[in-house]
């Protein structure tokens, strides 16, 4: 089999993941895109392992490890997203901007107070969710 096929597929999947990470607003969608990127890497590893006929099968072993690490990552990531959602009433990545530089004449500074009134509403929603769960 031509090595270019799996390699190019891997690259395309990776770039699709990049796009997802950069463009998606919902944190869980971002996590999905991250999974796509990880799978692209896995595919690359397997393809090169098969091509090189590595005696230790390091490519496939690493793939397995990557899958395991990815599973752990998705678990922790989801837990963090959940916690953020509980605390702030949103899981939108572009609204988690606590590290922004508040400057005079900065539009984000004006956004900050505008966000605030919405936050408690989300928060009570979150509490209700927990109570019902």
């Amino acid at each position: 089999m031509h090595l270019v096929f799996p390699a190019v597929l891997s690259m395309l999947l990776f770039c699709a993941g990049v796009y997802g990470v950069l463009a998606r607003r919902n944190a869980i969608l971002v996590l999905m895109a991250v999974e796509l990127m990880l799978n692209a890497v896995n595919l690359n590893l397997v393809a090169f392992d098969v091509w090189l006929r590595d005696r230790l099968h390091s490519g496939q072993a690493l793939t397995l490890f990557t899958i395991a690490v990815a599973a752990a990552e998705i678990g922790i990531g989801l837990a963090i997203v959940l916690m953020v959602y509980r605390g702030r009433g949103t899981s939108d990545v572009d609204r988690l901007r606590d590290t922004a530089e508040p400057g005079p004449g900065d539009q984000d500074a004006a956004d900050g107070p505008a966000d605030a009134p919405g936050t408690p509403a989300h928060r009570t929603e979150a509490h209700r969710t927990e109570a019902s769960a």
Binding site: A7, V8, M11, V18, V21, L22, A23, R24
Partner: peptide, 25 residues
Amino acid sequence: DADSGNRWAALLVAAASAAVLVWVV
């Protein structure tokens, strides 16, 4: 609002990296 306002920049970056990577590979 599933996509953030960053999508065009994201598209550009993704397309550019795809082009570079595919070309290289």
